[in-house]
């Protein structure tokens, strides 16, 4: 990767050419909410995984279907954790297409992504943005926006889209962390997540992890397997067809799948309901 030499005024100890996961994802989805350093990293990713753009598109399409499904089940409030840059087809846009009274709170810890979300949403009623680390559930659930917009006596749609593989460490610890989010929710609430997997990818995912490490992003990539990911739903009951390759989760048209089987299975996606 080309790297600009550090200007003299930057103290040598500080890491500076740092891409952002949120902006790389935006770039792969065709957005322009990104900087040169993000585009370079996206290009490196594409050298490892030529179908990275298709994979990003499938993930985003999965999110659309999972939100629409929840709205059809009566869910009218969403908490989107790790929401990233509010690129096209956000949760509130999708939910508002069905019912404009839906309320949505976005959570991310990237300050630029959060600032951007705030700018975009300042005139959209029923939406809010929180800057917080998802590893701190109290900060998320106790934030002003969550308290103001979400009513925990009613079902909430909790979304963790393409974010949990950025949380390293034991899956058991991660499952406990998610428990903190699941517990306060009312019956009829849902938990949706998508997660990059190593299953069946024959080492391609490791390449992606290497690119991220090489890019000197602070984010570390942890791919997990089916047996690990399924524990994240806890006592929630998986909705048909269960935890599957994102493309196979209730596909609704040609935008939901690709002709490349490995990309269809690149990430697991699932939705579960609190009994």
């Amino acid at each position: 990767m080309a790297r600009t030499p550090a200007p003299d005024w930057v103290p040598p100890s500080i890491d500076m050419t740092v891409p952002s996961v949120a902006r790389i994802y935006d770039c792969l989805l065709g957005g322009s909410h990104n900087f040169a350093v993000d585009r370079e990293t996206a290009a490196s990713l594409e050298r490892f995984e030529p179908h990275a753009r298709a994979a990003a598109r499938l993930q985003r399409a999965f999110m659309g279907r999972v939100v629409r499904y929840q709205v059809s089940q009566g869910v009218r409030q969403f908490l989107d954790i790790g929401s990233g840059i509010p690129t096209v087809g956000n949760v509130h846009e999708i939910a508002h297409q069905v019912d404009p009274s839906c309320r949505v709170v976005y959570v991310d810890f990237d300050p630029v992504a959060v600032a951007h979300s705030e700018l975009m949403l300042r005139n959209t009623p029923g939406t809010g943005v929180v800057q917080a680390d998802l590893r701190d559930p109290d900060a998320v659930l106790g934030s002003t926006a969550v308290r103001r917009l979400l009513d925990f006596s009613q079902p909430v749609g909790l979304l963790f889209m393409l974010v949990l593989h950025w949380i390293p460490g034991e899956t058991r610890a991660l499952a406990d962390l998610l428990g903190h989010y699941r517990d306060p929710l009312a019956p009829g609430s849902h938990l949706a997540l998508s997660h990059i997997t190593r299953d069946g990818q024959e080492g391609r995912v490791d390449g992606v992890a290497d690119v991220m490490r090489e890019s000197r992003s602070a984010d570390r990539f942890t791919a997990r397997g089916y047996d690990e990911i399924i524990t994240l739903f806890g006592e929630f009951e998986l909705v048909e067809p269960g935890l599957v390759g994102c493309a196979r989760w209730r596909p609704d048209g040609p935008g939901a799948v690709t002709e490349i089987p490995s990309i269809n299975e690149y990430g697991y996606g699932g939705l579960a309901r609190k009994p």
Partner: peptide, 13 residues
């Protein structure tokens, strides 16, 4: 739809 992320259900698209 095969090359872009379209933020609409396919029939609406």
């Amino acid at each position: 739809a095969g090359t872009n992320y379209v933020p609409l259900p396919h029939e609406q698209f």
